[in-house]
């Protein structure tokens, strides 16, 4: 039994399913919970790649803080009924809504499938051309130290600029959601 492959298959299934549900579920709170599952699955990938620190940050920041904030935002927003109501629909209607769109029919699905096909071809090429070896390199002894060193020496400038990006995003979010006359 190849445990690594099994783990990979499990995480992939979890990631794809929950990401799909994030955009198709009609309960907005469920979407937030599925989002948390997506982040956890992604953390699992980082763990499999021996990026322990990234996995921990992924869980703490994304699955923890970000999802909690999303849920808060849903609850604090104007809508009284934040749980979302189940839509009364037949089975065919549900399939239509999930896989198609109102104006474009199944076009989004076709585009998504096309993009997926292109990605698969590209990644097969990558492996075939031998640019990315399938053999894993030696795992870093201590990835936290390595990341910290890179982040605060070589990548210091982008790191500092990111803090400005976050500030600008925060101001922008407040401005765009605040109504005129409200202070």
């Amino acid at each position: 039994m190849n445990w690594e492959l099994l783990g990979f298959a499990f995480l992939t299934g979890m990631l794809l399913y929950s990401a799909f549900k994030v955009v198709t579920t009609t309960y907005i709170t469920h979407a937030a919970i599925y989002l948390a599952f997506t982040f956890v699955a992604l953390a699992g990938f980082f763990l499999m790649l021996s990026a322990n620190f990234l996995a921990a940050v992924q869980i703490l920041v994304y699955a923890g803080a970000v999802v909690a904030l999303v849920v808060f935002a849903i609850m604090l927003s104007q809508r009284q009924d934040y749980s979302g109501k189940p839509i009364e629909e037949t089975r065919t209607e549900k399939i239509e809504r999930t896989f198609g769109s109102q104006y474009w029919g199944a076009l989004p699905l076709v585009i998504a499938a096309g993009v997926a096909a292109i990605m698969i071809v590209i990644y097969r090429q990558v492996v075939a051309a031998g640019y990315w070896t399938s053999e894993p390199g030696p795992a870093l002894e201590d990835s936290t130290v390595a990341i910290a060193n890179e982040l605060f020496t070589k990548y210091l400038i982008p790191f500092e600029v990111v803090s400005l990006v976050l500030l600008a995003a925060m101001i922008g979010a407040i401005i765009l959601t605040k109504r005129e006359g409200q202070r």
Partner: peptide, 19 residues
């Protein structure tokens, strides 16, 4: 890329300033 995002996010917010 971070420069691009900084410019882009500032631009998004500025575009929506007429609330």
């Amino acid at each position: 890329y971070v420069g691009l995002e900084l410019l882009a996010i500032a631009s998004y917010a500025l575009t929506g300033m007429l609330r």
